[in-house]
Design a protein around this nucleic acid. Structure first.
Length: 173
DNA sequence: AGCAAGATCGGT
DNA sequence: CCGATCTTGCTG
């Protein structure tokens, strides 16, 4: 019997600033054509609560962002620029809207490119990584250096939020 | 009902 | 820097 490597609820319940860097090096597993595919997570960004002007929850609860208010472990996907799906993982406790944007996986850098590779679309909205049969996160240790920096593409959020070093990049050894 | 902007990407 | 392409949330 193999140990269950899937991450459970307690992992995703933590604050987004804890979960985001912890996701680096772990596997995202997705079932495509019946076969599981594994990719190492290499780049993420944290979006933290209604106060964070870069976070979709800064507008309060809307039909698009409502899943961010669920307990950690749910999937938040949204469509942007008329052609790209963004993949996010909700974190924290219920009614504390936070999420980690997955910006890179091994071999595919860029949030729009990786969702195309994984076949992520709106059918994944609200999926629960703790129990889902087609997408989950597995524990893994990867060797590499972690670099932090400001989040990308959020000029609209103002200097204060734009400057926060909430992007985490794993440079694989 | 109409509109401006967007957590992007690839080509000039 | 610019266009593609369409959903979203805000304004009226």
């Amino acid at each position: 019997m193999q140990p269950d490597k899937r991450l459970g609820r307690d992992f995703f319940r933590q604050d987004v600033l804890s979960v985001a860097p912890l996701l680096l090096g772990k596997y995202i597993v997705i079932i495509n054509n019946g076969e599981p595919e594994k990719f190492i997570i290499t780049e993420v960004e944290a979006y933290r609560g209604e106060d964070d002007l870069a976070c979709h929850a800064s507008k309060g609860r809307t039909n698009r962002n409502r899943i961010m208010y669920a307990v950690g472990g749910h999937v938040y996907v949204y469509f942007i620029y008329g052609m790209y799906w963004m993949l996010n993982i909700v974190t924290g406790e219920e009614d504390n809207p936070q999420a980690v944007l997955i910006r890179g996986i091994n071999g595919y850098n860029g949030p729009g490119k990786l969702t195309r590779r994984l076949n992520i679309d709106d059918s994944f909205y609200g999926e629960d990584l703790v129990v889902s049969g087609r997408i989950w996160i597995e524990n893994n240790e990867a060797e590499g250096e972690i670099v932090t920096g400001p989040r990308i593409g959020i000029d609209y959020a103002g200097e204060h939020w734009k400057n926060k070093p909430w992007r985490f990049n794993l440079l694989l050894k």
